[in-house]
């Protein structure tokens, strides 16, 4: 769902001068219920934590200090780099990245296959791929949990056919979280890639084939560069929500190792009750995502110019 650029084919001026009026509700609602809250969250990350939840309105860098610096269990050792939270972020980025690659490996061939069907069949295939996306994310995650648990149908099937002789022990592992993320966001990859492949001009492939390029060379040197925008859009749509995922680590990972989403959740809903720290972690997450999106936007404008 790459953002639709403004202007485009219909840069009409019928309502010229009315833009302010027409956009006022948008500014009010998103401004009030997203911009101001995020700004407030940014402020909270620089406040002092109140014991057991809440904040005291005093400026403090403690939240960021705690995130990046290790001062020992008792807070009086000389500071060194704190790897705990960087580690949590790194694991989340790694998990989200891996999910993105997996989605691409499965999603690209699927999108390609669908886009090369006859137009009538395409819609049917698209429908088949999108229906699961419309099913509640929670339901899908729970279904995955049910399927792969030690006493679940997957292990029962494999055990009864003798393929394995002990349960796979998938549940509550990082692999299970990975599977959950991949499963949750796979349709996000297929749709934008499909949109790009559908517009692909096969004359390019034919030209390459005339020059004796092999099938895979054409894929690598001709097709991939052309459909790249769709692939990048798909990657972002998988990567960003995976990065802040909460349900998959909580339900499939046994709430055992934090990912960014669960780390932040714990600060507000769990025992930690450290609001400024949770706000700081959320700020850092948002910064990472904004950097990814900015890089994407810049590459888009570069491509548009080229």
């Amino acid at each position: 769902m790459a953002a639709m650029a403004p202007g485009g084919a219909s840069n009409s001026e019928i309502y010229k001068g009315n833009a302010g009026k027409l956009l006022l509700p948008t500014w009010l609602v998103i401004g009030f219920f997203l911009l101001i809250p995020v700004a407030l969250m940014a402020i909270y990350s620089f406040l002092t934590k109140e014991f057991r939840g809440g904040v005291i309105w005093e400026f403090s860098l403690t939240a960021y200090d705690q995130f990046f610096l290790n001062r020992g269990l008792f807070g009086d050792e000389p500071p060194s780099i704190e790897w705990t939270y960087i580690g949590i972020f790194w694991r989340s980025i790694w998990q989200a990245g891996l999910a993105t690659v997996l989605c691409l490996l499965i999603g690209f061939p699927t999108a390609w296959f669908i886009a090369t069907r006859a137009p009538r069949d395409r819609t049917i295939w698209l429908l088949i791929v999108t229906v699961p996306y419309w099913v509640n994310l929670l339901i899908r995650t729970v279904s995955m949990k049910f399927l792969i648990r030690d006493e679940g149908p997957l292990n029962a099937l494999l055990l009864s056919t003798g393929i394995i002789d002990a349960p796979l022990g998938l549940i509550n592992t990082n692999l299970a979280v990975q599977l959950g993320l991949f499963y949750s966001y796979l349709p996000f990859m297929v749709l934008p890639v499909y949109a790009a492949v559908e517009r692909y001009d096969f004359a390019l492939s034919e030209a390459a084939a005339d020059l004796y390029a092999s099938r895979w060379t054409i894929l690598r040197l001709v097709i991939l560069p052309v459909v790249k925008p769709g692939i990048i859009a798909g990657c972002i749509l998988v990567f960003v929500p995976s990065l802040g995922a909460f349900l998959a680590p909580d339900l499939l990972g046994g709430a055992k190792s934090f990912m960014i989403g669960s780390l932040i959740e714990e600060q507000f809903k769990g025992a930690a009750g450290n609001w400024p720290f949770g706000a700081a972690a959320a700020m850092i997450l948002m910064t990472i995502v904004m950097i990814v999106l900015l890089v994407y936007a810049r590459s888009q404008t570069r491509e548009a110019k080229a």
Binding site: M1, A3, P6, A19, L23, T26, W27, I30, G31, F33, L34, L35, I36, P37, V38, L40, M41, Y44, V240, P241, L243, G244, F246, I260, G261, I264, E265, F268, W275, G278, A279, A282, L285, M286, V289, M290, L293
Partner: peptide, 27 residues
């Protein structure tokens, strides 16, 4: 402010869900 409006409309897509959740709770 056309570009800014465009960015604003898409902002909820760009902010990770957990961040929106936390920000809304604080607000």
């Amino acid at each position: 402010a056309k570009t800014a409006s465009f960015a604003l409309i898409n902002l909820p897509l760009m902010v990770p869900e957990v961040v929106t959740a936390v920000a809304s709770l604080i607000f």
